[in-house]
Computed example of a mutant assay.
Amino acid sequence: MIDNTELWVRLARVPRLGGQGIQKLCQRIPFSSLWSSDDTALRLSGLSDKQLTAFRAPLNASQQHALRWLEADNHHLIHWGHPDYPYLLSQIASPPPVLFVAGEVTALSKPQLAMVGSRQASIDGREAAYQFAAGLVIEGYTVTSGLALGIDGCAHQGALEKGGQTIAVLGSGLSKIYPAAHRELAKQIQSQGALVSEFFPDTAPRPSHFPRRNRIISGLSVGVFVVEAAEKSGSLITVKYALEQNRDVFALPGSIYNPQSKGCNQLIKSGAKLVETPVDIIEEVGVLTDCTILHQSEEQSRGEDNQQLPFAALLDTVGSDAIPVDVIAGRCQLPVHEVMMQLLELELQGQVTAVPGGYVRTRRGK
């Protein structure tokens, strides 16, 4: 047998599977039984021959490095369905199956505002990024960005120097900090927030990684604030994801003579909110902020009472007879995807078991 961490490391490297694919797989085979299931059962549950080969293959060098990396202090693997997996991120169209995290895991579940912008930022743009980040953390928000040169770095620094939390989402593995000029900044972020990546720790940065990183930046956040961006800036990719994820988009206006402001000015013309102070942002992001706080409070209250089982309302609907997921969702009045996340967590804890036709209760608390 292999432990749960190695099982997630294996699943994360299965091509074209992803978080939702793992969720569907676990609807057919209990997570705890995936490794011990025979190949025929895994094929019938949806794995292709190529996926099955990747799942069964001996751990490659990257996977072995990841397991060693996870042995260090404050190094974590947060998987789909884990109680620390960020709620807002779990709601996007393609949530990563695992996140590698260095630093404070709980920072990922706090209300976050993304700040992005040009790598070739002007002096005014850098100052604005610093000051807005400082203002946002004073109001209790975590500032999330991508550790890039320019606006990203200034946003992280503004948050850090005001004693707030900041999260950096990388387009590389966490053993390959990029850009190298921000290695010291990354250390500060790890001690006062978190470094996050969906890529295995030894993964080098590649151009194709950064759009994927950007969907996580917006997915973690209640809104995206573009401080300074050229007409074809990579920051606008983050905006595209934000709109797809129903996040608010904000932009700082700039001079018509500054090419680094053309992207922001165009966003404002297209409907993004023009921002002059942090208050302009905070006034607009109330609903998602409240949702994040509520979800975090529910998780904390469940953890504070050791005698109370997690997802008690859902557990009350599951008994000794198999109950389909859609029936459970109807009884709990919850979306099916949220019910699946709760069931996966309960399965990992040994509370329920997936069987043909649905789920049954396997253990009851006091």
Rank of each mutant, 00 (worst) to 15 (best):
E139M: 09
A204W: 09
Y141S: 01
Q308H: 13
Q20E: 09
C154M: 11
P95S: 10
S172H: 10
Y257V: 12
S218V: 08
C26M: 08
I268V: 02
G171E: 04
E298I: 14
S109G: 15
R364A: 07
H65A: 15
P58E: 15
Q91M: 12
Q300S: 07
Y141N: 01
H82M: 00
G365W: 14
I29Y: 01
N60F: 11
E304W: 12
L88R: 14
P111R: 13
H76L: 10
V285M: 09
S172K: 08
T292D: 09
D38Y: 12
L170K: 01
R302E: 15
I328Q: 03
I323P: 00
Q63E: 15
A102L: 05
L44V: 02
R126Y: 06
I189S: 02
Q20G: 00
E231G: 00
N74Q: 15
I92T: 15
G158R: 06
I328G: 02
W35H: 04
S235K: 08
L59R: 10
P324R: 10
L243Q: 15
A159Y: 06
Q349A: 12
V105M: 11
L267W: 03
G163W: 10
S45K: 04
S62L: 09
V275L: 03
R213W: 05
D248G: 12
A66V: 06
Y130W: 14
T238V: 06
C291T: 14
Q165K: 14
T106L: 11
V196H: 02
P310Y: 13
A251M: 06
L294N: 15
P15W: 01
T289S: 14
L334N: 03
K50T: 03
F132T: 06
R247P: 11
S270H: 05
D152M: 05
I237D: 02
A66Y: 07
L236F: 04
I237A: 05
I237K: 06
I293R: 15
L52G: 00
Y257H: 15
A12P: 00
Q157Y: 00
E345I: 00
E161Q: 14
I216V: 12
V137L: 04
E284N: 10
G19F: 02
E231I: 09
A329R: 10
P58I: 03
S197V: 05
P86N: 08
L170Q: 08
P356K: 06
R126H: 10
N265D: 06
H76P: 07
F55K: 00
A312R: 13
G303A: 13
V222K: 01
S320R: 12
I123W: 09
V105R: 15
L346W: 03
L185N: 01
L59S: 13
S191Y: 05
G365D: 12
L343Q: 09
L343R: 04
A134H: 07
N246W: 12
F100G: 03
I256H: 11
Y241F: 15
A313D: 13
G319N: 10
Q245P: 11
I138N: 11
P278A: 09
P335F: 08
L195P: 03
A322Y: 03
L136K: 08
Q342T: 01
G21A: 01
W80T: 00
R16T: 03
S191N: 13
K24H: 07
E71A: 14
V287G: 01
